[in-house]
């Protein structure tokens, strides 16, 4: 069977399986980040271009906790999302909440600007070449899967990302809180009339979306360069993922996140030069065929 695959596509099957798996892992990051964006857009109608900077902040806070307070990876996993999420709440209260009645474009410009400012401040404080962050001892090492050498940490990334994605989806789709949230996006006044504090709920939702970005940042810190630009490189791809999945669709962002990670992984084998472009080609095709995205409601 393996020989058949190899004969058909001209790539050794072990290499192919390895690449599929690696694609899935990258997809986990796309899913985590696009999930946060989808939550924020779905419930706040804000296109959060600060998301890349917040992802970066998640990784930096993990580094700060280690370097300044001696708190390791697991503490960072808990504290970094809380700290960065709280900073998101402040941003929402001070700036973003003023734009809900305006066109999307204003939110986009504001969050883009905020993202650039945050990145600039970090670059001035911490330089540009990045900071060291190690894989926690419990997760270092690797499994030999036969067809490839699989670092334990990457397996953890997939598990953690799946956990957060499914938990978020369950909260929004299956709980009473989620029902309030969804109701508030449809008819905020009506929900408020039932005695629910809609502005506070929206603030907390933004904080939660930002915290998801920070979780992804902590997950990324041991394997990617922790530098102020780390988010801006990723965020454009993640936006494409959100557009393909359907703006604001929670399930769409998760499924397309993982799916596009795999597509990108395969492209890295067959046509490496195109691997940064393939997601945008798919985006263009999807937009032509289904302008609302694969999972979006037109």
């Amino acid at each position: 069977m393996l020989e058949t695959i190899e004969g058909l596509i001209g790539v050794p099957a072990p290499l192919l399986f390895g690449q599929l798996l690696l694609g899935l892992i990258n997809g986990a990051f796309y899913a985590m980040l696009s999930l946060g964006l989808a939550v924020i857009f779905g419930l706040l109608n804000i296109i959060n271009f600060t998301h890349g900077a917040q992802f970066m902040m998640g990784a930096f806070v993990a580094w700060m906790l280690l370097a300044w307070a001696g708190l390791g990876y697991w503490w960072a996993m808990l504290l970094s999302p809380l700290i960065v999420g709280f900073s998101g709440i402040i941003l929402e209260k001070v700036f973003i909440s003023r734009l809900y009645k305006l066109d999307h474009l204003y939110g986009l410009l504001l969050t883009l600007g905020l993202g650039l400012i945050i990145e600039g401040v970090f670059r001035n404080e911490f330089g540009s070449s990045g900071l060291p962050y190690r894989i926690p001892a419990e997760l270092s090492g690797a499994w030999d899967l036969g067809f490839m050498f699989m670092p334990i940490y990457r397996g953890w990334v997939v598990v953690a990302a799946l956990f957060f994605c499914i938990a978020t989806w369950l909260i929004i789709e299956k709980t009473r809180l989620g029902a309030y949230l969804r109701a508030a996006t449809e008819r905020a006044e009506l929900v408020q009339a039932f005695g629910i504090n809609v502005p506070r709920m929206i603030t907390l939702t933004y904080g939660a979306g930002v915290a998801l970005a920070a979780v992804a940042g902590v997950l990324a810190a041991p394997i990617y360069s922790v530098n102020p630009q780390m988010g801006s490189n990723l965020i454009i791809v993640v936006f494409a993922v959100v557009v393909i999945g359907g703006m604001g669709s929670i399930l769409g962002s998760i499924v397309t996140g993982f799916g596009l990670g795999i597509v990108e992984g395969l492209t890295k084998v067959f046509w490496p030069e195109a691997s940064a472009t393939v997601i945008f080609v798919i985006m263009a095709i999807v937009l032509l065929a289904r302008p609302a995205g694969l999972f979006g409601k037109a």
Binding site: L15, G18, I25, Y224, N233, V237, P272, E273, A276, T277
Partner: peptide, 21 residues
């Protein structure tokens, strides 16, 4: 040799595995 898109590549694991092969 493998040519990686610049800028825009953060994950090189796939290329490293190819190199190792």
């Amino acid at each position: 040799a493998v040519r990686t898109p610049f800028p825009g590549t953060t994950d090189f694991s796939s290329f490293l595995v190819q190199a190792q092969a």
